[in-house]
Design a protein around this nucleic acid. Structure first.
Lengths: 203, 203
DNA sequence: ACCTGAACACCGTTCAAGT
DNA sequence: ACCTGAACACCGTTCAAGT
């Protein structure tokens, strides 16, 4: 112990609240997440979060925003390969998405809940757009290379986004068991990508 | 007014609680749903729900179960056509699913939340299985007729289920605007069903 | 069997006051 | 600027008691 005196200012309360909140979120669910409990856990007064997060929803939004940012950096890495095998690249991004979902199921659920808010904070919107930019970008590249059917890439991305988000729901629900994910997901995506690829267009 | 005397027994409290709860759910969200508020609305004491729903979660589970039952009857109607055009029948079931989602978004979200419960009540499980039985059944028929790729129909159904559930998420989020749903959904499903149809298998 | 009223242990949020 | 302590208006749940 470096010092026996704890300062009046916590100094790092905002960060610690986010960290503790995410742990509690995954452990006990959003429903059970309580600001007062977090305060107790961190040894501060129950009113102290208010300076950093005026309302509980502000904490949840901050959690969702940070989630989208982490999600973006993972997806960006998966999308980074610049080869011409668009099928493989799209599959990698989808698997990254799914990996995040299985590691942080409650956080991802919170992120999608946050999307449904009437008035979304601008940082959340920005983080969200960044996180969902990779699939349309790859599709666009695929179209330019003549390997993906023509059409608005954002619209085509909905197809893949829908499948992936649906797979997330199904995976988290435990309908797909553990390791078989690595088999089933490429198979399912294969069906979908077959429908998007030009090679099958006029069969 | 038939009678000025209100009986001590409400007589229909269970039903009325479910009705009022669903209305409040769609109007204000799960987060804001309060048993005490429902009791006030129905003019009963705040402790009266307990006899019918020992805990708040029991009310939510009953709501989810009723939701799956309604959902099942709608999906059953959509699946009823017995023609050989499996593509069209699957699209009909998917559109029925999506229609339900757009009409009762909060209820459907609750239904999928309920699926994530550690200990699911048996009636909920039964209702859920019934609701999700139609797509595998049609796929099986399609396989028997040689129009759908071989493989476990439940596994293939995951593909369609994933797409539909993903479309639900996207539609509710308002990323697809109103009427264009009728155009976009068959288009997206077309991509997926192309991937499942035998006619494109060896292109 | 079904409902009431009081009680208990929690919440989120506000606000004057302290450092 | 950041945190505290008391206060306010809510919750869900329990339980003896009423009908």
């Amino acid at each position: 112990m470096k010092s026996a005196t704890r300062p009046y200012h916590h100094g790092n309360l905002r960060q610690e609240l986010l960290r503790a909140a995410e742990a509690a979120l995954e452990a006990r669910g959003v429903q059970q997440l309580s600001l007062r409990e977090l305060s107790r856990e961190l040894g501060v007064s129950h009113a102290s979060p208010q300076r950093h997060f005026p309302t509980k929803q502000d904490l949840l939004n901050a959690l969702a925003t940070a989630g989208f940012q982490r999600f973006d950096s993972i997806a960006a890495k998966a999308a980074a390969a610049s080869g011409q095998n668009f099928h493989a690249r799209l599959t990698k991004v989808a698997l990254a998405h799914l990996g995040f979902a299985l590691k942080h199921p409650a956080l991802l659920a919170l992120m999608f809940e946050a999307k449904r808010q009437p008035a979304m904070p601008p940082e959340l919107l920005t983080a969200l757009h960044a996180a969902f930019s990779h699939i349309p970008r790859i599709l666009k590249e695929g179209q330019d290379a003549g390997k993906i059917v023509p059409g608005d890439p954002y619209r085509l991305a909905l197809t893949i986004g829908a499948v992936v988000q649906g797979l997330v729901a199904i995976s988290i629900d435990g309908k797909i068991k553990g390791d078989s994910l690595k088999v089933i997901v490429p198979e399912i995506l294969g069906h979908v990508l077959n429908g998007l690829g030009t090679s099958k267009l006029k069969a």
